[in-house]
Amino acid sequence: MNTQLDLATVLLLHKSSFLVGAFCFLYARWQSPRDEGLGILASGFFFLALASTLAGYGEQKLLPAYLWTLSSFTLGIGGYALFWIGVRRLSAGRRRKTDWLALSIPIAGAAIGLATHFHVVNYIRASVFNATAFVFLAASALAVISGRSREPLPVRALFAAAMAVGANLCLAVVIGLVKPGIIPITTTYAFFLSIICHFAIALFALVLVKERAEAELRCSADTDALTGACNRRWFLAQLPRSNWHGDCLVVMDLDFFKRINDRHGHQAGDQALIAFVDLIRKNLRKGDCFARLGGEEFGLYLPQTSEAQALAIAERLRRAVEELVVISNDQCIALSVSMGLAFAGGDEGTWEDLFNSADAALYEAKRSGRNRVTSFSSAAASGSKPMERSLSRTG
């Protein structure tokens, strides 16, 4: 297949792949101005396209060797440095001023070239260029894949793989130049494969931006804007559709919350809600689900937790809230919470039945003086009647 590849055509396509990628990055930057790195990625690909153009003119003897060799080498290394900076910012979603130190590498390369004229020797220039490109591409792939723990987007693996393949192609070129015959791949064929990598990198960068936007929309739809807690919609979606016997549901309601709003103002009430949410979230076990159901009411789902364990957990949370003091306008606001607990013992037909049981327990806790945890079994024993309520209620 190598003999069927025309070098001039491949170089033209190679340059074109950088230009197409640059315009894709610019379009994505226009559509998603908050995504860091897209403009820098476009600049990097433009630099690489210009370097490829100068190299093509040089190979056709249209430019003097001393001019195109050093300029294409410097622009190409600079392009890969910008590419790495852009990928780092796109992956992390934030700026790092120290990333710009990567541009010292092409500057140093240009200075060494002016001093030693190594760039006029084709295999040395090509070896150094591709070795540097390998380092930047491999580092870019590592930056993308290392961000999966913070932002587990599916496309990250494909994005990193495309850059890893490009890095290995650069490494193959270096090995082929230093030790000819070891790797059965020509420079022309390596350029051809790298064209595919460039298109793949541009494609997966666009998909990453799209997946990130969709994830942000899902997060916004599932998050309470005031407290940052998950909302009712998310909470109901987390409840299992089957095999939920042996789980516990706790419904919480802040005591005398209207009095806090009336006495201290709604801003103080908001601060109290935020402080309450932060406290509860810090004291949850892994696997527990907590959400704001509406107003000052919250839900806590405890999977595979006995009634005794759930009572102990709820009591610990109640005491923590009782000790919490919120400072607003130099005034101390004391909080307390009432909790109703229902255990899924197997008689409940639906989650609505369990919610009604937890509501009945909460009603009994309120009726008995507030600032306490009451289970449905004890509330039923005392003869308390459940309140009318359905899962569609939002207050």
Rank of each mutant, 00 (worst) to 15 (best):
V120Q: 07
L302S: 00
L177M: 13
L114R: 05
I182Y: 15
L62I: 02
Q4K: 13
D288N: 09
D270N: 09
G109N: 03
I77Q: 02
C219E: 14
G78Q: 12
G265F: 02
H245F: 07
L391I: 14
E307H: 08
K179R: 15
G349F: 09
L317M: 15
P184I: 11
C24N: 01
V277G: 06
A229I: 03
R94A: 13
F46M: 13
I185N: 10
S149Q: 12
Y66D: 06
R150W: 12
A344S: 15
G58D: 04
C219M: 11
C289Q: 11
P386D: 05
Y189D: 12
G93M: 08
P64E: 10
A161F: 09
F290E: 11
V135A: 00
G395K: 07
S375W: 10
I195C: 15
S390N: 15
L279E: 04
G346K: 11
A202I: 06
L19R: 01
E296Q: 05
T9S: 15
S72H: 00
F136H: 01
S220F: 07
H264Y: 15
G79R: 04
P386E: 04
I105V: 15
A314M: 03
L13E: 08
C197H: 06
E307R: 12
G79V: 02
L391F: 08
A358Y: 09
L254C: 01
F376W: 12
N231I: 05
A162I: 10
G294S: 01
A28D: 02
D270V: 02
A143M: 13
Y66I: 04
L177H: 11
A160S: 15
N261S: 02
I201H: 01
L5I: 12
N231E: 05
G76C: 03
R125L: 01
L54P: 03
L103A: 09
A360C: 15
L12I: 09
A361Y: 11
V128S: 02
A190V: 05
I85S: 06
R318G: 10
P154V: 14
L48P: 00
V321E: 11
R367L: 12
T394R: 14
L203R: 09
G113W: 00
A312I: 08
I77K: 01
R88E: 13
D253Q: 01
N122C: 01
A126V: 04
H264D: 02
F191C: 09
F73P: 00
L114W: 07
S382Q: 14
G86M: 10
P386N: 06
L203E: 08
F46E: 01
L70E: 04
D247V: 00
G86V: 03
A310K: 03
A190P: 08
Q331I: 08
V120T: 07
L142D: 06
T53G: 06
T227I: 02
E36D: 12
T223Y: 11
G269A: 03
A381C: 13
D222R: 13
